[in-house]
């Protein structure tokens, strides 16, 4: 069988498995991992009007995986009437962050400027993180829409990490590390993360050493969070498809090994 045909069969098989799993409506309950539960409990027990920073530190390409995590955590924050300060330390995350924040705010009828604000993008992330420890308004004199931040009602009592309960970094790379290293280590700011699955192992040392408060990781993390929130979203919808896709890959690995060893025996390689 030529390589192109084999590839076509493998990819078509995966597409069929995922699409069929999507069309079957089975509710997939996932038991929350300790890290997701910790993140949920923290946001759940924060008093109303507490301020949380959501930093959208990711590229557009990771949106399919990041979006369910961000939406679940934003919904939780808005539902519990927390005040949200959104920003981005990654240029591509700017418009995405604003879009996700405003979309979720509309669901809960929250007002821009008093319940949430989006400060936009700031280059030189290390200076920005360190600068926010001194004055957020000095680092972001204007918000994403061009309003002066010191005139916005939400920012009246907020000036530094002293007024921020938690930083939630939604990331697909190492930007959360900088939040931990500069905001966490220097200003004792609590940091948690919503991460793509590929990054989870890189952040495990920070989680184990309690420098990172909690992690909601990948589509599975999003599904766990949605279950805790009792609000079905992209994570829960994708869980059956993900499990089916993993079984399919496992089957391919087994079949590939059988074919390999059979061919080796035929060639007399033992």
């Amino acid at each position: 069988m030529d390589r192109l045909r084999t590839r076509w069969i493998i990819f078509s098989g995966l597409a069929i498995v995922v699409i069929v799993s999507y069309l079957i409506t089975i509710k997939f309950k996932t038991a929350p991992s300790p890290a997701t539960l910790k993140a949920y409990k923290y946001l759940d027990t924060l008093p109303e009007k507490s301020v949380v920073i959501f930093s959208f530190d990711h590229e557009a390409s990771s949106l399919p995986e990041i979006q369910p995590i961000a939406l679940a955590m934003l919904r939780h924050a808005f539902k519990n009437d927390l005040k949200i300060v959104g920003l981005s330390l990654f240029a591509e995350g700017t418009a995405i962050g604003y879009d996700l924040l405003s979309k979720t705010a509309r669901e809960y009828d929250r007002q821009y400027g008093s319940d949430y604000i989006f400060l936009g993008f700031k280059p030189q992330y290390i200076s920005a993180i360190l600068g926010m420890g001194e004055s957020i308004k000095r680092v972001f004199p204007e918000d994403y829409l061009g309003n002066m931040t010191d005139t916005m009602p939400i920012m009246l009592g907020i000036d530094s990490y002293d007024n921020i309960e938690m930083v939630v970094s939604i990331a697909d790379g190492d930007r959360t590390v900088q939040w931990v290293e500069y905001a966490g280590a220097r200003y004792n700011q609590k940091v948690m993360a919503g991460l793509t699955a590929a990054m989870i192992t890189s952040y495990d040392p920070y989680l184990s050493s309690e420098q990172l408060y909690a992690v909601v990781g990948g589509l599975r993390g999003a599904a766990e969070y949605e279950n805790l929130l009792d609000k079905r979203g992209g994570g829960s919808r994708g869980m059956l498809a993900q499990s089916a896709a993993h079984l399919y890959i496992l089957a391919l690995v087994i079949v590939g090994n059988i074919i390999y060893f059979r061919n080796r025996r035929r060639r007399g390689g033992g």
């Binding site: 069309l23 896709a245 993993h246």
Partner: peptide, 30 residues
């Protein structure tokens, strides 16, 4: 091994996210 497994999971999630978009927002099948 754990990192590779998570990376496969991550790529699958990205694919599933796009399929979710195609079936819900684009084609309105679900």
């Amino acid at each position: 091994g754990a990192t590779f497994g998570y990376t496969v999971m991550s790529r699958m999630s990205t694919f599933i996210g796009r399929v979710d978009f195609l079936l819900t927002d684009f084609l309105h099948l679900i």
